[in-house]
């Protein structure tokens, strides 16, 4: 069972976590065109590689970001949202 490291709770089996989609910046709804907005809502980047994703530790309710290399199936690091510099 793969290990994922929650930034608060430490290393836990991956079954304790839920994946919640890619970390993306929302375009400004006031200025985005309909096409730009639809692309944001529906189009996701499928290519394997280094991704930044939302992950949730179900047992404790912690939301965090995981940086993963989906081609190598490796979790590079995990950090709380806004704390990537740490």
């Amino acid at each position: 069972m793969k290990i994922m490291t929650c930034p608060i709770n430490g290393a836990r089996p991956v079954s304790e976590f839920a994946y919640a989609g890619a970390l993306r910046d929302m375009p400004d709804p006031a200025t985005a065109t309909d096409e730009q907005w639809a692309a944001y809502v529906f189009n996701k980047q499928g290519k394997a590689g280094i991704k930044r994703e939302w992950w949730y530790h179900i047992a404790s309710g912690v939301w965090f970001i995981a940086e993963r290399d989906t081609a190598a199936d490796r979790v590079i690091r995990t950090y709380l949202f806004g704390k990537e510099a740490a």
Partner: peptide, 12 residues
């Protein structure tokens, strides 16, 4: 609940 906490993680 999960989604609300996620939104507030972003909005702070």
């Amino acid at each position: 609940y999960r989604e609300l906490t996620r939104w507030n993680t972003i909005w702070g």
